[in-house]
Amino acid sequence: MATKQWVDLTEGECIADVPAVDVGEATVTVVDCSTPHRAEVYLLAPVAVDAAITGVADAACAAGVADYAGTRAGLSVTYLIDSKQDRTGAIPLPSTVICLLQSGGGEPLAGSVRR
């Protein structure tokens, strides 16, 4: 178990809870995927700042589910958007959509959802 900034999450990491970024929560607790957890990072999708909106994030995350989890039923997708424009220079894709898989019923996941 380790605490880190949610903007530093990487594919395959499992987190105890999805951060409430709307109220300024900046850290997450990363846990071993074999223990109960609320979400698993399955894709980091770079996008243009102007495109870092709900529709683009939904499409980017939806496109990566099958590659990571196969056809496993009962999962739902959520995401966090890291807009790095205030921390970096002029780069072509300065935002990242951090795609997360969760249980569709709200219960903790037990084990990785990676196929």
Rank of each mutant, 00 (worst) to 15 (best):
Ser112Pro: 03
Ala73Tyr: 05
Ile81Val: 13
Ser76Gln: 09
Val23Asn: 10
Tyr42Lys: 02
Val23Trp: 11
Val97Ser: 08
Gly64Phe: 03
Ala62Gly: 09
Val23Gly: 05
Ser95Met: 06
Thr78Gly: 06
Glu11Val: 15
Gly55Trp: 01
Asp50Tyr: 10
Ala16Gln: 13
Cys99Ile: 00
Ala62Leu: 04
Ser103Cys: 04
Gln102Gly: 03
Asp32Ser: 12
Val47Arg: 00
Val18Tyr: 10
Val49Ile: 10
Ile81Lys: 07
Ile81Met: 08
Pro19Ile: 07
Pro36Leu: 13
Thr35Ile: 07
Asp58Asn: 09
Leu101Ser: 07
Gly55Leu: 06
Ala39Cys: 04
Leu9Gln: 06
Glu40Ala: 06
Gly111Met: 10
Lys4Tyr: 09
Ala59Gln: 09
Leu101Asn: 04
Cys14Asp: 08
Arg115Phe: 10
Thr71Cys: 03
Val97His: 03
Thr29Gln: 14
Thr35Ala: 14
Val49Glu: 15
Glu40Thr: 03
Gly24Thr: 05
Thr10Gly: 15
Ala51Arg: 01
Thr54Gly: 04
Val113Ala: 04
Gly104Gln: 01
Ala69Gly: 01
Ile81Asp: 07
Gly74Glu: 09
Glu40Arg: 01
Ser103Met: 02
Gly74Gln: 05
Cys99Met: 00
Thr3Phe: 14
Arg87Phe: 14
Tyr79Glu: 02
Glu40Asn: 05
Arg72Lys: 11
Ala66Pro: 00
Gly64Val: 01
Ala2Thr: 13
Ile98Lys: 00
Ala2Ser: 14
